[in-house]
Design a binder for these strands. Structure first.
Length: 414
RNA sequence: GCUGAGAUCGUGUAGUGGCAAUCACAGGAGACUGUAAAUCUCCCGCCUUACGGCUCCGAAGGUUCGAGUCCUUCUCUCAGCA
């Protein structure tokens, strides 16, 4: 294919921004909407690729910052790219490392989560913190490695160079997400910087793709990242700015939760080119994210929460989330969810998984991860089907009312 | 039987004359959204929504202004010797 990426919309859901489609990459297709599996360090934590495929994972997303630190860009290049390195044959994404400017910067050890509107704990002191491992300036982000303290400097250019060494199918431009505590002045400053970095990312990306052509290699794709926090004018400005640049797709970044999804995503998706794929960065820790994201035009999601929460014992059921460690599951021999088709639910009981967690047995982490990841992957797959057969709103209502209960679910039903 | 060492929260411990309850484990619950994360937070003698109140260092006495701590006796445990 002489194009890095091809996106075909197969069905639009009337009266909404939702659509189903197919993203074609050199490593295969992604049927969208799709949940992209978190594979930060070129591994889906606790799972083999066979398990990821069995739970329906179409594509994985790795992280440039992490792989740059270890094993390093040279090893990734020498391995022949991430697909060969981790033995994954399907489509892949890499995040640019921009998010670590936030998670290792303003948010580092400060109890700032990606959703809250106000500080909790000692977050108020974050602004004056000297413990943060990332500092941003116009040129790039100065990181102190969270592994060994080594100093490194990431720029849009070297993020792209490392991403091309990793050689995923779809890259992200280098960006700066802002803290939920940031004021409008800083949000604007970071957004403008993100725009300049988008131009620099794109330029370096195009140079690197030209080299791929010369060597007869596959082209790689690049998404531009929209920022602007929860500010309507900034979000629209950001979408407008990035629309004029020749990206293969767009990602919506920043830190917000499901309550802001309808507004934030609608603002930008009404402006971004309709025929390009849209990725919602870091959202999908719970069903409301998925339904709202798709309804307002999201084609792909990635989120580490399903696997992280699984490792910490928080498991999805159609009736809401449970903590499998709770005493009440010690002698509960039913599956995590009796309607779930995952390997774990087909073969193991709540009591057994409770025992594995209490005993610190690593199989528990794997079984829990299979379940949670299958739950979100299947939910997005079912959402796609509901777009194709026109039953999206019925499905959404039935799912969310049961999951959140009649009162809370009214927050997402319109 | 003799000698010695011990007995503090469910368990193992810290505390060696001055408001008892440190640390760990076990236990109870919660959080987690582009992974710093098999992590973090809270509770964990009794009562109390909370504020706070009441207990409590094997048992009983004693010394002392004051004892988990010092003394006496007893009970139990462990080790060694018979």
């Amino acid at each position: 294919m002489n194009q890095a990426l091809n996106f075909t919309i197969t069905k639009k859901l009337e009266g909404t921004m939702a659509r189903s489609g197919v993203i074609s990459t050199p490593h295969g297709e992604i049927k969208t909407p799709a949940f992209i599996v978190g594979g930060t360090k070129a591994t889906v934590k606790t799972l083999t690729n066979e398990q990821v495929i069995a739970l329906g994972g179409q594509s994985v997303l790795a992280n440039t910052y992490h792989l740059m630190l270890r094993p390093g860009a040279e090893v990734m290049a020498a391995a022949g790219g991430i697909n060969k390195f981790m033995n994954w044959s399907g489509p892949t994404f890499t995040d640019s490392g921009g998010f670590q400017a936030f998670s290792l910067g303003m948010a580092y050890k400060k109890g700032i989560d990606t959703v809250s509107h106000s500080e909790k704990g000692d977050a108020a002191q974050a602004v004056h913190s000297s413990t943060q491992l990332a500092k941003v300036n116009d040129e790039g982000v100065k990181f102190q490695s969270h592994i060994n303290g080594e100093l490194l400097f990431m720029t849009p250019e070297n993020s792209m160079e490392v991403q091309h060494a990793i050689a995923a199918d779809i890259h992200m431009s280098f960006d700066e997400p802002t803290s939920p505590l940031a004021g409008r002045d800083y949000i604007k400053q970071a957004m403008d910087r993100t725009h300049r970095w988008a131009e620099r990312s794109l330029k370096r990306h195009q140079e690197l793709n030209a080299e791929h052509i010369q060597r007869g290699e596959c082209l790689q794709a690049l998404y531009g990242i929209v920022q602007g926090a929860r500010e309507e004018d900034f979000r629209k400005e950001s979408a407008q700015f990035l629309s004029q640049l020749d990206f293969d797709g767009y990602a919506i970044g920043g830190v917000f939760g499901y309550l802001e999804i309808p507004q934030v995503i609608q603002w930008v998706n009404e402006i971004l080119p309709e025929d390009k794929p849209k990725h919602l960065l870091g959202l999908g820790s719970q069903p409301a994210d998925l339904f709202l994201g798709v309804q307002y035009g999201t084609d792909t999601f990635d989120c580490v929460a399903p696997t992280r929460q699984a490792r910490n014992g928080a498991l999805f059921t159609y009736d809401g989330r449970i903590n499998i460690r709770n005493a009440r599951f010690c002698s509960d021999f039913s599956p995590i969810d009796s309607e779930c088709d995952c390997y774990t639910c087909q073969n193991y009981s709540r009591a057994y998984i409770n025992h594995l967690f209490r005993s610190d047995e690593i199989l528990g982490l794997t079984l829990a991860s299979i379940h949670n990841e299958r739950f979100v992957v299947r939910t997005v797959d079912n959402i796609r089907d509901s777009i194709d057969d026109g039953t999206f709103f019925e499905y959404k209502k039935r799912f969310l009312e049961r999951y959140y209960g009649p009162e809370q679910s009214t927050l997402f039903l319109d």
